[in-house]
């Protein structure tokens, strides 16, 4: 995982802090909008999260956004 250097002013001097870069935000497979309910964590922390903390509890949760999921089911029923 890449590391970004950040200049931070502490009480006495300016310090270079190393900040871990995070992966990009999850996107909907169809409309490419950012997905809600999916954390942006580095893989080692993602593994620690419970399943329900990693994606919404909906069909296609974490893969399609809610609008695209509704369109999908509306097409299926039509």
């Amino acid at each position: 995982m890449g590391v970004r250097k950040k200049r931070v002013r502490t009480a006495t001097k300016v310090v270079i802090r190393k900040v871990k870069k995070k992966p990009k935000i999850a996107k909907c497979a169809v409309c490419k909008k950012p997905l809600h309910g999916v954390p942006r964590e580095i893989p080692s922390r993602m593994r620690k999260l419970a399943k329900t903390e990693k994606r919404p509890e909906r069909p296609f949760g974490g893969y399609l956004c809610s609008e695209c999921m509704r369109d999908y089911f509306r097409k299926v029923i039509a």
Binding site: E57, R58, P59, S66, M69, R70, F73, R74, V76, I77
Partner: peptide, 11 residues
Amino acid sequence: CYKVAGREAGR
């Protein structure tokens, strides 16, 4: 009817 949204979508 057919639930389109929520946990029970698709039922």
